[in-house]
Design a protein around this nucleic acid. Sequence first.
DNA 1: GCTTGCTGTCCATAATGTGGACAGAATTGG
DNA 2: CCAATTCTGTCCACATTATGGACAGCAAGC
Lengths: 257, 257
Amino acid sequence: MTTEPRQGAQAIRRALMVLRILAAGRESGVPLTEVVQATGLTRPTVHRIVHVLIEEGIVERHEKTGRYAIGGQVPELALARPSRSPLLAAADDILARTSQRVGDTLFLTVRTGNDTLCVDRRIGFYPIQVLSIEVGARRPLGVSSAGVAILAAMPMPDARKIVTANEVRFAGYRTSVATVLSQIALAKRRGYNLREAGLVQGTKSLSTWIKTPDRQPAAAITVSAVRTRLGPRREQEVAEILLEAALAIEKKIESLP
Amino acid sequence: MTTEPRQGAQAIRRALMVLRILAAGRESGVPLTEVVQATGLTRPTVHRIVHVLIEEGIVERHEKTGRYAIGGQVPELALARPSRSPLLAAADDILARTSQRVGDTLFLTVRTGNDTLCVDRRIGFYPIQVLSIEVGARRPLGVSSAGVAILAAMPMPDARKIVTANEVRFAGYRTSVATVLSQIALAKRRGYNLREAGLVQGTKSLSTWIKTPDRQPAAAITVSAVRTRLGPRREQEVAEILLEAALAIEKKIESLP
DNA sequence: GCTTGCTGTCCATAATGTGGACAGAATTGG
DNA sequence: CCAATTCTGTCCACATTATGGACAGCAAGC
């Protein structure tokens, strides 16, 4: 029951598109051209939208660089929703326990539209930790290990649709529709996703997916570690722990609301 | 240097207007009619905007009540800005110390557009505490004690402009332009704002304003207590403490960035 | 100087968003 | 049970609004 046919609000939808691209730029922001290319809108249009949003305090422009970023009024609006999401609440202590068992950095990543968004990170006890990704990091679904995992958990046609929609943005991350689709296929048959070459050289990531009560894949748990920490033997161990954690979180969400 | 003449984005501005009204409704949300009356837009327009925002995940609708509220995607966008605002950072420990000295509940309230927004609250040690306002509470400037304080700190023409803009919304809070203007005048000559009848019966509030380095009044510190705790003698004492705290925060903001 | 790669602005045009009017659903109360 | 009232949702003719091609400025590199 995905209804999406309401019209009469092109401009608003476009503004939100822009906002989501800007969100991916985090503090440092995004140059106008990049927004243009990522949204597929024309430059005058993006320019107008961005500047209206600046006047409204929703977007900021960095004095020096001229890049555009999410403005201070967005967190202010967010204050209207005090409570954490059920997922975050449910995941909290399970992540803590899992982190203790694994020892390497754990990430909790959710799907939001066609993006992945890192919403939690736990640092383990092992002396070498991969901290490449921070809470708030947002990338097109399919780029990160967590993204592939989430895509692998959904019906192939849906996944393909999302991947295609993200095609233009993949260029900036040195990947392609074909690459992502094959990674999804691999993850599907393995039951979890594995990434040999992480964003940082010499790291390896492993992700399992979490489904909400309505069976939609909505999130992923990821472990990142230096490659030597994740040999074939330990990979198997860690995979089982993560699968267990994912299941535990799914159960807990059901019991909460 | 307030430039506000950019056009070609009526719809986007309207959508943001709607969002800000919804933000004031917090978790419980706002019925459509109220949004219509607060924004001055027509009902079909508000309806369209709100429903597009729902499709985009920016707004949610409560199943039972049918009221509209800020959606889960807003905090997700807010994650793009990890750092606290300079004001919050500067105020942190000063609030803690002030709370120790006063013993009653302290609020930090900022101005955002034509609204006040409570961004921090410290509970004191005295056994009776006024907890009427929560972090995230948003009201039209002029309605709360903090709002009057902030208005009192700006040039009268500016204050009058804001108060007039909020006129339609005052009805819902049982106040009026005239009332607010007279409160502002009183606060101006006193150097801080005093409210005998708080939102809750039998409480009393006292607010001092904080200006940013560019001399714009941007926030207020408020103490709320049961009336008996704030007799004339203690009122004077508390006012001095709050004035001191406001000054300290102003100084600290300047030194930070 | 010329090119390349940005950002910003204009304005004729049509597509977009508007809102009056109508309709249904839910609640009240006589 | 049927007005009366008050809310939400939808339609569609119309003109206001947002669009984007074209032009312009500006800085960096060659």
